[in-house]
C-alpha cells in the first residue's frame, strides 16, 4: 500500500517535471523573442520620434482643432503606438515560438484569431472615450449657457452614458460576457424608455403637457435676457 502511494507520487512528480522540462525551451524562446522585440520596438519608437520631430509634425498637427482634446503630443502618441504595435507582434511571435517548443498545439491559432478583435476593441475604446469627453463638455457648456441649474449633472450623465455604451460595445466586440452584456443593455435602455413612457402616460402627464405647451408657445431663451435696455451687440 505504502509502496503503491510512493510509486504514484514519484510518477506524478516525474510527469510534472517532464512537462516542465518540455515547456522550458518554449518559455525561454518566448522570453528571448519578447526581449528582442522589446529592443526593436524601443529603437523604432525612438527613430519615429526623431523623424517626426525633424518634420515638425507636432506643429503641423496643432493647426487642427479636432485634436485639441489630446493631452500628449501627437508624435509621442504615434511613437507609443509603434512601440506597442511591435511589442504585441513580439508577443504573438513569442507565443508561436512557445508553441513550437512545446507539445501544445492550437494556442497560437486561438490567439491569432483573437488579435483583430482586440485591435477593433482598442479603436472603439479610443473613439468612444474621445466622443464621451467632447460630448459631455459640449452638453455641460451649452447647459450652463442655457442657464440650466443641472447642467453639470447633464454633462456628466451624457459622458458616462457614452462611456458605458462604449464599454458594452468593447466587451461585445471582445466576445466577453456573451449575452449578459446585451441583456443588461436591453434592460437598462428598455427601463429608461419605459420609465419615460410611464411618466408621460401616467404620473407626470400634467407636468409634461404643461412643459410641452410652454415649449410650443415660446422658444427657449439660451441666455438670460436681463432687460430690454441692455444690448450686447
Amino acid at each position: 500500500m505504502g509502496q503503491q502511494i510512493a510509486q504514484s507520487l514519484q510518477d506524478s512528480v516525474g510527469r510534472v517535471i517532464t512537462k516542465i522540462v518540455m515547456l522550458l525551451p518554449g518559455i525561454v524562446a518566448f522570453v528571448v523573442v519578447l526581449l528582442i522585440f522589446w529592443a526593436v520596438a524601443a529603437g523604432l519608437a525612438f527613430g519615429v520620434r526623431r523623424i517626426l520631430a525633424a518634420l515638425r509634425f507636432d506643429a503641423r498637427f496643432e493647426q487642427s482643432d479636432n485634436f485639441a482634446e489630446w493631452t500628449h503630443s501627437p508624435s509621442l502618441l504615434i511613437a507609443r503606438v509603434v512601440f506597442w504595435g511591435v511589442f504585441l507582434l513580439g508577443v504573438l511571435v513569442g507565443i508561436s515560438a512557445f508553441e513550437a517548443g512545446s507539445s501544445d498545439t492550437g494556442l497560437s491559432a486561438y490567439v491569432f484569431s483573437y488579435v483583430p478583435r482586440v485591435i477593433g476593441a482598442l479603436v472603439l475604446l479610443f473613439v468612444g472615450t474621445l466622443v464621451a469627453r467632447v460630448l459631455g463638455r459640449s452638453v455641460l457648456i451649452s447647459g450652463v449657457n442655457m442657464n440650466l441649474q443641472y447642467a453639470r449633472l447633464l454633462g456628466t450623465g451624457v459622458k458616462w452614458m457614452v462611456l458605458v455604451l462604449t464599454a458594452a460595445m468593447v466587451l461585445d466586440h471582445l466576445a466577453i460576457g456573451g449575452h449578459i452584456v446585451d441583456l443588461a443593455f436591453g434592460i437598462l435602455f428598455g427601463g429608461i424608455v419605459l420609465a419615460l413612457a410611464l411618466a408621460v402616460g401616467l404620473g407626470s402627464r400634467d407636468l409634461v403637457s404643461r412643459s410641452l405647451e410652454r415649449e410650443v408657445a415660446t422658444r427657449p431663451t439660451p441666455v438670460p435676457v436681463a432687460d430690454e435696455r441692455i444690448h450686447h451687440f
Binding site: 496643432e62 482643432d65 485639441a68 482634446e69 463638455r137
Partner: peptide, 8 residues
Amino acid sequence: LRTINRTH
C-alpha cells in the same frame, strides 16, 4: 494653444 476645443 488649443488648450481645449475652441468652440468649448
